[in-house]
């Protein structure tokens, strides 16, 4: 497999994993912030964005590295 195609495939597969993880974390935050009903909307939105962004930053490299490793093992190395 061409290196470029390989990278694209890694990116695609990884995104399918880390995006739901980040969105899940953000959603969880939203749910937690919504239940008491004591937070203004902007704080909730800001919090969702910040938690989502940080979750993305944490999960993106972890997932990408793992997917790359798995995919590399499955493909030819020459």
């Amino acid at each position: 497999m061409e290196q470029e195609k390989f990278d694209q495939e890694v990116a695609r597969r990884s995104a399918l994993i880390y995006l739901p993880i980040s969105l899940g974390a953000a959603l969880l935050f939203l749910l937690a912030a919504s239940v008491p009903g004591a937070y203004p909307l902007v704080a909730k939105v800001g919090g969702v964005v910040w938690v989502g962004l940080l979750s993305l930053i944490v999960s993106m490299p972890l997932v990408t590295a793992r997917v790359k490793k798995q995919l590399r093992a499955k493909t030819s190395i020459t």
């Binding site: 990884s14 962004l53 940080l54 930053i57 993106m60 490299p61 972890l62 990408t64 590295a65 790359k68």
Partner: peptide
């Protein structure tokens, strides 16, 4: 660049801090 390839470094800390 690093994130795209699954790596994180100090730049990420700075970027997040400054960006936020």
């Amino acid at each position: 660049r690093g994130l795209k390839h699954g790596v994180t470094d100090m730049n990420l800390l700075y970027a997040t801090g400054i960006g936020a």
